[in-house]
Protein backbone atom coordinates (compact mmCIF):
# COMPACT_ATOMS: atom_id res chain seq x y z
CA UNK A 1 0.00 0.00 0.00
CA UNK A 2 1.38 3.40 -0.88
CA UNK A 3 1.52 6.16 1.68
CA UNK A 4 -1.18 8.05 -0.19
CA UNK A 5 -3.79 5.38 0.14
CA UNK A 6 -2.79 4.31 3.63
CA UNK A 7 -5.57 5.04 6.05
CA UNK A 8 -5.47 4.21 9.66
CA UNK A 9 -7.77 1.31 10.45
CA UNK A 10 -9.41 -0.26 13.45
CA UNK A 11 -6.57 -2.78 13.95
CA UNK A 12 -4.03 0.05 13.94
CA UNK A 13 -5.94 1.85 16.66
CA UNK A 14 -6.24 -1.35 18.70
CA UNK A 15 -2.50 -1.93 18.29
CA UNK A 16 -1.44 1.56 19.34
CA UNK A 17 -3.87 1.49 22.26
CA UNK A 18 -2.18 -1.66 23.47
CA UNK A 19 1.30 -0.16 22.99
CA UNK A 20 0.16 2.90 24.95
CA UNK A 21 -1.45 0.79 27.70
CA UNK A 22 -4.98 2.03 27.08
CA UNK A 23 -8.10 -0.14 26.96
CA UNK A 24 -10.85 0.80 24.52
CA UNK A 25 -14.42 -0.38 24.32
CA UNK A 26 -15.70 -1.44 20.90
CA UNK A 27 -17.63 1.77 20.65
CA UNK A 28 -14.54 3.84 21.52
CA UNK A 29 -12.49 1.87 19.05
CA UNK A 30 -14.96 2.76 16.29
CA UNK A 31 -15.12 6.40 17.22
CA UNK A 32 -11.35 6.86 17.68
CA UNK A 33 -10.68 5.10 14.40
CA UNK A 34 -12.82 7.62 12.50
CA UNK A 35 -11.34 10.59 14.36
CA UNK A 36 -7.73 9.54 14.10
CA UNK A 37 -8.11 8.59 10.44
CA UNK A 38 -9.23 12.13 9.72
CA UNK A 39 -6.10 13.56 11.30
CA UNK A 40 -3.86 11.09 9.50
CA UNK A 41 -5.64 11.83 6.24
CA UNK A 42 -5.02 15.50 6.82
CA UNK A 43 -1.35 14.70 7.34
CA UNK A 44 -1.12 13.16 3.89
CA UNK A 45 0.07 16.51 2.55
CA UNK A 46 3.14 16.15 4.73
CA UNK A 47 3.53 12.43 4.12
CA UNK A 48 3.45 13.06 0.36
CA UNK A 49 6.27 15.62 0.39
CA UNK A 50 9.65 14.67 -1.00
CA UNK A 51 11.91 16.05 1.70
CA UNK A 52 14.58 13.35 1.75
CA UNK A 53 17.28 15.98 1.17
CA UNK A 54 16.09 18.18 4.03
CA UNK A 55 17.69 17.79 7.45
CA UNK A 56 15.16 17.13 10.21
CA UNK A 57 14.78 19.71 12.99
CA UNK A 58 14.43 18.24 16.43
CA UNK A 59 15.40 21.43 18.25
CA UNK A 60 14.09 24.71 16.92
CA UNK A 61 17.04 26.70 18.30
CA UNK A 62 20.29 24.84 17.58
CA UNK A 63 22.51 24.24 20.59
CA UNK A 64 25.15 21.68 21.50
CA UNK A 65 27.13 20.37 24.45
CA UNK A 66 24.89 21.50 27.27
CA UNK A 67 26.56 19.85 30.26
CA UNK A 68 26.47 19.79 34.00
CA UNK A 69 29.53 19.47 36.28
CA UNK A 70 29.72 16.17 38.19
CA UNK A 71 28.89 17.71 41.56
CA UNK A 72 26.51 16.12 44.05
CA UNK A 73 23.42 18.14 44.88
CA UNK A 74 20.47 17.70 47.17
CA UNK A 75 18.14 14.72 46.98
CA UNK A 76 14.53 14.59 48.09
CA UNK A 77 13.76 13.22 51.53
CA UNK A 78 12.49 9.65 51.37
CA UNK A 79 9.35 10.62 53.25
CA UNK A 80 8.64 13.23 50.58
CA UNK A 81 9.28 10.71 47.82
CA UNK A 82 7.04 8.01 49.21
CA UNK A 83 4.30 10.42 50.30
CA UNK A 84 3.09 10.48 46.69
CA UNK A 85 3.18 6.69 46.27
CA UNK A 86 -0.15 4.93 45.81
CA UNK A 87 1.36 2.12 47.89
CA UNK A 88 4.73 1.54 49.53
CA UNK A 89 6.52 -0.97 51.73
CA UNK A 90 10.01 -1.06 53.29
CA UNK A 91 10.89 2.32 51.82
CA UNK A 92 10.02 1.14 48.32
CA UNK A 93 7.20 1.65 45.87
CA UNK A 94 4.86 -1.32 45.95
CA UNK A 95 3.29 -2.59 42.74
CA UNK A 96 1.28 -5.66 41.80
CA UNK A 97 3.27 -8.61 40.52
CA UNK A 98 5.33 -8.05 37.40
CA UNK A 99 4.82 -10.49 34.54
CA UNK A 100 7.70 -10.70 32.13
CA UNK A 101 11.07 -9.04 32.41
CA UNK A 102 12.30 -5.73 31.15
CA UNK A 103 13.36 -6.03 27.52
Amino acid sequence: MSEQSATLGREDVAHVASLARLALTDEELDRFTVQLARVIDHARDVAALDVAEVEPTSHPVPMRNVLRPDVVGECLGRHEVLAAAPECEDGRFKVPRVIGEAP
Binding site: D70, V71, G73, R78, V81, G91, R92, F93
Partner: peptide
Protein backbone atom coordinates in the same frame (compact mmCIF):
# COMPACT_ATOMS: atom_id res chain seq x y z
CA UNK B 1 30.91 9.27 38.33
CA UNK B 2 30.02 11.10 41.53
CA UNK B 3 26.50 11.86 40.29
CA UNK B 4 23.89 10.33 38.03
CA UNK B 5 23.73 10.81 34.28
CA UNK B 6 21.07 13.52 34.20
CA UNK B 7 20.79 14.85 37.77
CA UNK B 8 22.92 15.70 40.78
CA UNK B 9 21.91 12.69 42.91
CA UNK B 10 24.82 10.56 44.15
CA UNK B 11 25.79 7.58 42.04
CA UNK B 12 26.22 5.20 44.96
CA UNK B 13 25.66 1.50 45.57
CA UNK B 14 24.09 -0.01 48.66
CA UNK B 15 22.34 3.00 50.22
CA UNK B 16 18.88 2.87 51.82
CA UNK B 17 16.18 2.49 49.13
CA UNK B 18 14.84 5.66 47.51
CA UNK B 19 17.23 8.01 49.26
CA UNK B 20 19.37 8.99 46.27
CA UNK B 21 16.50 10.34 44.23
CA UNK B 22 15.17 13.68 43.02
Amino acid sequence: TKTKLFCACPNAFGDEPNTNVC
